[in-house]
Design a binder for these strands. Structure first.
Lengths: 113, 113
DNA sequence: CCCGGTACTCAGCGATACTATGTACCGGTA
DNA sequence: TACCGGTACATAGTATCGCTGAGTACCGGG
């Protein structure tokens, strides 16, 4: 993806991860994998883990340590009640933004050509 | 708007301003006004001017100084050819993001409840 | 000659994603 | 026991972007 994506993801990646967790609990590596499946192929591992630390500190997720057969214990994340509220606000903001941009797009195309 | 909007605008505000300029040339204060009209009521003046400096340095806009009857000369911005290309890339990235998020939204709602 | 409003500029801050490492844990093999 | 490879997670440093709050420049009116 282009460099524009990097900046565009700021603020949305958090919501994306929360939405993924709304579908079902998952541990870090699994979340990264799901992001890749959904087309976000260029998101670095470190980015996801750093984000998970943030949303955990904000109390948006519950964490459970689960021993793994291969490697260190996994941290399984699931949406907390607070996280659900936060996700709702995210969708509200997102909807607002898409609406404004849809308008802009049609306006720009009407006069742009 | 909430704090989420601030982060969500990173990377999109630039595209929004370019799209506004695609509708028609404008000077800084006018661009700020158009943003407000379009619902972006909380965007600070300083933010817009800083953004304009950036896109000018990137060559995405042409600038013409026009004397004003009231106040300092206005800097009128208009999309350059390079800016138009950049705007196209922006819409491509934006479309990708909206598609992925639309999918996510339905998935999260199906299993989320 | 100063005042108020317009238009633009700048320094410092906080938050986010990226890159590139580094650490911890486990099973398998000899 | 001792090593190795792969998995899962963590951290340090960097760049970008939008926000806040102040400052500068220009003009007409009283």
């Amino acid at each position: 993806m282009g460099k524009q994506m990097t900046e565009m993801l700021k603020g949305t990646l958090e919501g994306i991860v929360l939405a993924i967790l709304a579908v079902g609990a998952a541990h870090g590596a699994e979340i990264t994998a799901r992001l890749r499946e959904r087309g976000f192929t260029d998101i670095a591992e470190g980015t996801v883990y750093a984000l998970l630390v943030r949303i955990e500190q904000k109390g948006l997720v519950d964490v459970e340590k689960v021993p793994s057969e291969k490697g260190p214990p996994r941290k399984v994340y699931s949406l907390s009640a607070q996280g659900r509220d936060y996700l709702d606000e995210f969708w509200t903001s997102w909807n607002f933004l898409t609406n404004q941009l849809t308008d802009l797009k049609t306006d720009a195309h009407e006069r742009g050509h």
